[in-house]
Write a protein that binds this DNA or RNA. Structure first.
Lengths: 287, 287
DNA sequence: CGCGCCCGATACCTCGTGGGTATCGCCCCA
DNA sequence: TGGGGCGATACCCACGAGGTATCGGGCGCG
């Protein structure tokens, strides 16, 4: 009946590595260590939790249901620990007037962002705002692990859970396609129609890990590249209305009847005490 | 230029202990260890973060601004790690039909809870619901560290940040006072009036750490005790309207004109995958 | 059908470091 | 000015994290 050891972040990092690689050897390599200590660490973790986290197969390790839970919760915990570390460092090095880090999806909501930044800069107590443009889906992660203080996110695409948010703007989505295309004269269209045009397969965006989903469409991660390909008649893309301001010649737009409305929100981590974040949010909600 | 060590939960626990005690010796005692290793651990943490976390005074240690940040963020991180541990254990021991733990403030929203539990139990895929009544303010903590899966909380009193929520009910607040009291015939009243009746000082509730605020009113932590004292003409209390169903003889009620409206919400941790939680929330939103 | 490969697990050793005791240095207050 | 209370330092020990070598087993391939 000895004292129950507490979970250490090192164990969580080991566990997530093994879970992600589904292979002790590869995980060990990724962690820069040998395989046996990693095996032992995982075994000890399972013993301590009283839970089988993996089923050992001849091909490697696969997660049990409990393992899935620990992977999800553990990732959140690790992000929170990282955030604690980063925010402390930043609080220490920038005494007082620390710049606020705002992250947004590259190429989206540009006019809204411009308005927000201009309006905030005009505030009497405004602090410096560092804008970090990141690839889609990464903004929420940056907010979770402390790399950013505040983010511009889009519902229902981004995962807002766990953040405090204010809605800024809700809009419909449209299909952007080449100007000359037969369907470009349609008054409206459904999402299924829009994404199943035979000669205009929708582009594929990278997952968070950098891999691409399967499909016929082009692999892309940049909005301007996509628009160029649309102009060339190779693909068509569904975008929020406000992205129309970016459009130039050679592109046509068809409203979508049944696409989910997109809400642009400003999000920040719970319990934020940064006056800069508070000011930005206050300004944003008045736009 | 060696590799940057990562923050371990043990260090966070040490840090929070010292921060809370403002005294290395007492913190060491609380942690069941000697003082010197704790001093060293704190010093190493400060070196690694490149941040002064404490200012050493002859009387003990007090937090710097960076230290305040780490205390707040670190507590959240520790709660998240604990939650990961607990939820994994629970997922392992109860394969499949795990009971859902619902926590609520003792004595509040009783009819709403009863309706909710009855309605949910009637669902075809309902799982067992374990109800944990806890003292005010503790429900959010239990949700954060994994002791509960879902909670009934009250805005603006509970800290909802970081949770997903659904609003269930919004209501006004009323003053409950002894039936014979001169003010009991008033048609309405303001909050300042209600809380500054000379012969009926408002009761004092314990803080989360168990201590009581200063003041003339009685120290209480239980609603029925409070109502009894009201009946005896010793105090008066502000409550949501729905608490009136608990009232019996000897009590009078006066509506408050400017009290904040109280919203009862059902809250659950982000990324919850529990079907039981989903079912409860679905049921609750249909009430 | 069995040899061999590719898994993770085990055995055993080493060394870093977390934690212990003893003591110091310092600041306040009596 | 001396004593008490505070955190820091010095020094030591032992536990455990991490290394190398090896085992055991399941599947695939010749």
């Amino acid at each position: 009946m000895d004292v129950v050891e507490n979970l250490e972040t090192r164990e969580l990092r080991y566990f997530t590595a093994v879970a992600e690689e589904a292979h002790v050897g590869r995980a060990a390599e990724r962690l820069g260590m040998a395989q046996p200590p990693l095996s032992r660490a995982v075994a000890r973790l399972e013993r301590r939790l009283g839970a089988d986290l993996f089923v050992r197969t001849p091909r490697g390790m696969t997660l049990t249901a409990a393992g899935e839970v620990l992977l999800r919760e553990g990732r959140a915990a690790l992000a929170q620990v990282e955030a604690a570390e980063r925010r402390t460092r930043r609080a220490a090095e920038a005494r007082g007037r620390a710049p606020v880090v705002l992250t947004a999806k590259a190429g989206a909501s540009s006019e809204l962002m411009a308005k927000l930044l201009a309006a905030y800069a005009a505030e009497p107590d405004a602090v410096e705002v560092e804008v970090v443009l990141s690839s889609p889906g990464h903004q929420a992660l940056m907010l979770r692990d402390g790399r950013a203080d505040v983010a511009i996110l889009h519902r229902p695409f981004d995962d807002l859970s766990g953040f405090d948010t204010d809605e800024l703007l809700t809009e419909n989505q449209v299909l952007v396609l080449p100007a000359g295309h037969p369907l470009s004269t349609r008054a409206s269209m459904s999402v299924v129609e829009a994404t199943s045009i035979p000669d205009l397969p929708p582009p594929r965006w990278p997952h968070l890990d950098g891999t691409y989903p399967d499909g016929p469409g082009p692999e892309l991660s940049d909005l301007t590249q996509v628009l160029q390909l649309v102009r060339l008649g190779r693909t068509a893309i569904v975008l929020p209305e406000s992205a129309q301001v970016n459009l130039r010649d050679g592109l046509a737009v068809v409203p979508l009847t049944d696409a989910p409305r997109v809400t642009t929100v400003i999000a920040w981590p719970p319990h934020s005490t940064s006056p800069g974040v508070a000011g930005l949010v206050r300004t944003a909600s008045r736009l």
